[in-house]
Design a protein around this nucleic acid. Structure first.
Lengths: 189, 189
DNA sequence: TCTCAATGGAACACGCGTGTTCTAAAATCG
DNA sequence: CGATTTTAGAACACGCGTGTTCCATTGAGA
């Protein structure tokens, strides 16, 4: 017993992840999904879900933090401050593109992003804004494209790409279209 | 009495519109809004709502057809088959941009577009695909940008623009960014 | 003004998701 | 194998949105 509440390794950790993953997948398809639906998708009893997440809101909390965590790590991997700006943004797109599950959910449950932990101006946002500003000063990004616009646009392009994937377009093709479009938008005329 | 069920002019028509408008606005902000919420937003009793739309699904039906109707008329006004392709697409964006309410709702309630009346390949979709194909053959649209991609992208750009407006960006500025981005994406390299 | 359609509000039953408790079975670990 | 943890499932109460009915009131049109 007791290796502390911190690590939670072993069975409990795996069950928790299974519930979390099932919740993300299920809620993405159907935002109003029932706890019973989620439990079924996780191959787990409904009572077990309550054992890990007392209330529904606790489950949403868990999902929110999980998403935030995945995004943070993806952002770090992109190494936004290294090399040419266009290439850095392309790397970010590719990293984010691999986390379709999380991002799709954020689009179908916008309430997630209004939570305290999503306090505007997260580290990720700041890193992204920083690289855009760098592009502006370096002249590698069209000054007409404001940073607020590009911030939103990047997400929208990803969303669009995933939309195509859902309609049976090959992933690599969708990603290419996404990257090519971003490239053309930021290009200085 | 009785001028037929067709016209429904006068009081009933106005009440129906008020409920419909309130439903669109309320559901956009909160997809899980209650009929009581909608009734309140329409300054109408909850029983009155049931008087015009027997079940909740009937109300959704009404919203769906209303949205479809607005989009159709906006598409027609854009006169996609007239003049240069880039200009035609710009006109379409401007027309659509004016119907933020309807489009925002379509993004927060994607189920709407999976209904029978939204049977893929609507007249609007066909008109839009046609003008894109014309752009491809005329050489005014980058052939690397497939029609499926541009179809989705156009909506995404509008969604992004409205997102900026919600964050206090002036409407004309958001629309400009949207149009400029579309222009750059379709431009042949 | 008179008549009738239109409305609002209260009251009710119903279905359903939620959160809780309890018990027996299963899986894990020493 | 034995002890402990973890689980599934049933049962229950509760809150809430929904759909319905009834009745009194308001408003519009002839």
């Amino acid at each position: 017993m007791s290796e502390g509440v911190v690590t939670e390794t072993g069975v409990r950790a795996r069950t928790r992840r299974a519930i979390l993953d099932a919740a993300i997948e299920t809620l993405t398809k159907q935002p109003g999904a029932t706890l019973a639906d989620i439990a079924a998708a996780a191959n787990v009893g409904r009572t077990t879900v309550h054992r890990y997440f007392a209330e529904r809101s606790d489950l949403i909390d868990g999902i929110s933090h999980d998403a935030l965590d995945k995004i943070s790590r993806a952002t770090e991997r992109a190494r936004l401050d290294d090399g040419p700006v266009p290439a850095a943004l392309a790397r970010l797109c590719q990293e984010y593109f691999e986390h379709a599950d999380v991002f799709q959910l954020l689009f179908t449950m916008p309430d997630l992003m209004t939570r305290p932990e999503w306090e505007e101006e997260s580290d990720d946002d700041r890193a992204l804004l920083r690289v855009i500003e760098r592009g502006h000063t370096e002249g590698s990004i069209d000054p007409a494209m404001t940073k607020e616009w590009l911030l939103q646009l990047l997400w929208s392009l990803l969303y669009t790409a995933w939309g195509l994937v859902r309609e049976k377009t090959p992933k690599h093709e969708a990603l290419t279209l996404c990257l090519r479009s971003l490239e053309k938008v930021i290009a200085v005329s």
